[in-house]
């Protein structure tokens, strides 16, 4: 199935991105290049829809990714013709094109200077601020990117995308408590986002299993991870990622019950007893094997899962089965 041009293309597989950009000439030909704003012309030409400009933006991203710069320039030209040279989004896309075409560090520095220039004229230009941060990150200046992100969040604290980026930046630096804090902010803004709950669980699991984590913080993180994965399943029926995490966490908890359980403080989430954890583990195993079975058989109504994720779940299940039979022997 061809992916739609109406959704941001960054999570597409390379094959899908290639497919989209190969269709670029046809899409460009089939859509109006300019839309007149005069009411008389609007009577005779096709109606202008916001989707058209969204389509150009996403096509631009796909084409840049696959290296089809000519089509990308065409998309940008059309956006400029409609929205003007100084539109904030258009400015960001222009910068993106320059970033993609920069051949060495000097050119990247020049792009960065341009961003600074734009921001010195108008420092509330959020798309350009975001471009500047991601360029800094892309050039390896991660701590600078983090401090700029904090600044951005200072004046725009409801930007969930920026909080999520901050969490990712901190995670790459190994700053687990900060990353978890930032992701919790995303959840404050979007409390029903089941994938963010699962992501937070994953981060907490990583923090718990990181080499530096001591007994106290291990208990805290692993209990929180259990809670987050359970919440993600509560929000989304048959959520493969949530069940995968739940299985991982409960298996880990069951394997190291020898560790002394710390008395949880008042406002903290305490681990449930072993029986509950065992039942959760069984539930996760049953659900995961159901998902794997239906998904590999390509049953009707079970084809939405990502093949790589199903393969990972299969591997986890077989590893678990091997461990169980090893104990029995």
């Amino acid at each position: 199935m061809t992916p739609s041009l109406l959704h941001p293309p960054s999570q597409l597989s390379p094959a899908d991105a290639l497919h989209l950009s190969q269709e670029a000439p046809a899409v460009l030909q089939g859509s109006p290049s300019t839309v007149s704003s005069s009411p008389l012309a609007a009577l005779f030409s096709a109606k202008e829809t916001p989707e058209l400009w969204l389509k150009y933006e996403n096509l631009l991203l796909s084409c840049l990714r696959t290296g089809d710069e000519q089509a990308a320039h065409q998309c940008l030209e059309r956006l400029v013709a409609r929205l003007g040279n100084n539109n904030e989004r258009v400015l960001a896309f222009k910068g993106l094109l320059k970033e993609a075409e920069a051949k060495n560090n000097n050119e990247l520095e020049r792009v960065l200077k341009e961003y600074d220039q734009i921001l010195s004229e108008n420092d509330t230009n959020i798309p350009i601020t975001k471009r500047r941060i991601s360029l800094l990150r892309s050039m390896g200046r991660v701590s600078e990117a983090a401090s700029s992100l904090v600044q951005l969040l200072d004046f725009s604290p409801t930007d969930a995308e920026a909080w999520s980026e901050l969490a990712d930046v901190y995670l790459t630096q190994g700053l687990y408590p900060q990353a978890i804090y930032a992701l919790e902010e995303v959840l404050v803004l979007a409390p029903n986002a089941w994938n963010i709950h699962a992501r937070l669980g994953e981060m907490q699991y990583m923090a718990a299993t990181a080499p530096g984590a001591g007994g106290g913080s291990y208990q805290k993180y692993i209990a929180e991870a259990l809670k987050r994965f359970s919440r993600s399943i509560e929000l989304c029926d048959d959520y493969l990622r949530g069940y995968y995490g739940l299985k991982l966490v409960t298996t880990k908890l069951l394997n190291d019950t020898a560790k002394p359980s710390r008395q949880a403080e008042e406002d903290e989430f305490a681990l449930p007893d072993v029986g509950t954890i065992e039942r959760l583990n069984e539930l996760a195993t049953a659900k995961l094997s159901e998902i794997v079975r239906h998904s590999t058989a390509q049953d009707r109504g079970w084809r939405g899962y990502d093949a790589a994720e199903v393969a990972a779940a299969k591997e986890l299940l077989s590893k678990d089965a091997a461990a169980v039979s090893g104990i029995e022997r």
Binding site: L61, R65, S134
Partner: peptide, 12 residues
């Protein structure tokens, strides 16, 4: 979008 973050895309 909170995980793909199109505004922060690292095109390079």
């Amino acid at each position: 979008v909170f995980e793909t973050r199109p505004g922060f895309v690292d095109i390079r």
